[in-house]
Design a protein around this nucleic acid. Structure first.
Lengths: 273, 273
DNA sequence: TAAATAGTGTCTGTGAGACACTATTGG
DNA sequence: CCAATAGTGTCTCACAGACACTATTTA
């Protein structure tokens, strides 16, 4: 194979030496990261947003992210940006979807590889670099609407969701399309990224151990259940829930106050299979 | 917002007019498509490969695909390439994963957005453009190995699979890593794309209606079951299988020979919910 | 006529969904 | 002491897994 010559009589080595891709127009490729956590009392989901200091979408809130550099993978870029902007390391980080609408960035042709990061402790973040204007927002996604707000900052963004039918081959799908209802809006197509990442999270939450990336090292079962209910957007039955997680948790022997109720509960840790 | 000026005193309009991204090095972005079908008698999965006529990987077999153009989405690019290379239109086509290893293409920095396409009829493809050297290969993925072969062409590619442990946040995963065991190999990292796409297909096959994109307009239940067994890599029980698909199919009233056994069976069509 | 396959009946175990109940504890 | 919550028992229903059996038909 390596000895084969192409129609111009070049070997692979010769071809590569002479190869140039200067002729083609190319896109920029960025990563955008949905960093998701929960409030200390397990009463709401939290999403990390960064205030843009530059055009376009100057002063708008946006997902953290940045451009992929020449000698790194998208994962490495997401990991690097996450550490630069939040000092977070070693957290759950996974590719969600790649957004390629050529009109998604008014500057130029920019694609974005979306990532989802899960964090258990809010405090581990905002410390670092105060030059960057970052803040945790409450994220509420329920039937028909998305609310993203930070009361202390007086910011509230509100989207309504329509279900839109479409078809792929023989399969009929329903998808959510968000429409901004507030004057403040997220930058770019970041609301779409949030929807996609949240759907993926929901899908995996019941059948994998994702929850334990958001629960903290030690937790009570009432608190863990509250977390599941936040993500799955529905009430769970205590008995069924405890059966579900029974094989994945281990009692520490300690008792402590549930964040959610202030009553004493047994304390557990995650037990990897 | 649109009236705000940035630190250089520019409005968004002025900023965009002066914006240039010429300074940054950018990757090329391609789409690669795993086109999957089945043999007429439902006895094996078929994958469409194209013989490369250029360096690198000259004369190697590769997934169909090509570069994304400036004013299209990745989906449109995949759709266009699929039609150009196979004349297929309107088939199931879905994004799988984005591969970004900077070393995946020896020419230069090339990312690839992988797509999975499902096709019910082999014949609908190879007709078109005979300048392109395209062929259907048998695809067998079972415990520990992948075989991709076309007996008529005398081509057989063989990979062994190792399960590799890795960790993401608190979650421990197992992933498959393929190692080529034959002299002929697929181009680029296409074996990884095949693995990823096949895993995604398996995941969705039982819980969505993907199967009906590969079954054909009319089919018998024994044939449909054979298809499920090919994709899920395991034998199914007739009773349970028929219960599973009962609500998704509708008898046409006709009887016909099962492709798999040559015996008369009732004929069904897909009934979308 | 025999071997193979289409098609149906039914038993099992598992897990989600749903209540009811007791034990404990903070206010 | 009472209201709220931790924790447990158990019933139901849907469904996957597993056999056994009858009906049909090709070879």
């Amino acid at each position: 194979m390596t000895e084969n010559k192409d129609k111009n009589g070049l070997t692979e080595k010769e071809f590569l030496a002479s190869y140039s891709d200067k002729g083609y127009e190319k896109p920029s490729v960025s990563v955008d990261i949905m960093v998701l956590s929960r409030s200390a009392d397990f009463s709401s989901l939290k999403i990390l947003l960064i205030k843009r200091g530059e055009h376009p979408f100057l002063n708008c809130w946006a997902l953290p992210g940045g451009f992929i550099r020449k000698n790194e993978t998208a994962y490495q870029a997401a990991s690097r940006e996450l550490e630069e902007e939040t000092s977070l390391r070693g957290v759950y980080l996974n590719q969600v979807y790649t957004f390629t609408n050529p009109a998604r960035d008014p500057r130029s042709w920019v694609m974005s590889v979306a990532y989802l990061a899960l964090v258990s402790d809010l405090a581990s973040v905002s410390a670092k670099d105060d030059a960057i204007d970052a803040a945790w927002f409450d994220l509420k996604i329920d039937s028909g609407k998305i609310t993203i707000e930070n009361e202390a900052l007086g910011v509230r963004m509100f989207y309504s969701l329509e279900t839109k039918q479409f078809q792929n081959g023989k399969i009929h799908y329903e998808n959510w399309v968000a429409k901004a209802e507030s004057s403040e809006k997220l930058a770019f197509d970041h609301i779409e990224i949030i929807i996609e990442a949240f759907l993926k999270l929901k899908e995996k939450f019941e059948h994998t151990d994702l929850a334990f990336n958001m629960a903290g090292d030690k937790f009570t079962l009432p608190d863990l259940q509250a977390l599941f209910e936040l993500v799955l957007c529905k009430k769970l039955y205590k008995t069924n829930f405890r059966l579900l997680v029974a094989s994945k948790v281990e009692a520490t022997g300690e008792k402590r106050k549930s964040a959610i109720s202030g009553k004493l509960s047994a304390e557990y840790t995650y037990k990897a299979q």
